[in-house]
């Protein structure tokens, strides 16, 4: 198991994995999301190629109501 930070919270995952596999834990359609890995946006086309390592900081965001 490795520990990463997702949206500010420490999360344990099985091991290093792709962003795509990490997002399999999420129910919302992937095109409602954007992902940032260590402060850089990960384009959706790269989800399968980009790997999350121990200690990485991941942000997963969506759109909400706002003005």
């Amino acid at each position: 198991m490795i520990t990463i930070t997702v949206n500010g919270k420490a999360v344990e995952i099985e091991g290093e994995m792709s962003v795509e596999r990490l997002l399999d834990t999420v129910e919302v359609p992937p095109n409602y999301l954007a992902v940032e890995l260590n402060s850089d946006v990960v384009p959706r086309e790269d989800y399968s190629a980009v790997t999350v390592h121990a200690g990485d900081e991941v942000e997963v965001v969506t759109l909400v109501g706002g003005g």
Binding site: V6, N7, V26, V61, G66
Partner: peptide
């Protein structure tokens, strides 16, 4: 619309 963290592990709400 605003950009906010997705509530990944406590979902069930509607998406705008």
């Amino acid at each position: 619309v605003a950009v906010r963290r997705e509530k990944l592990y406590e979902r069930g709400g509607q998406n705008i």
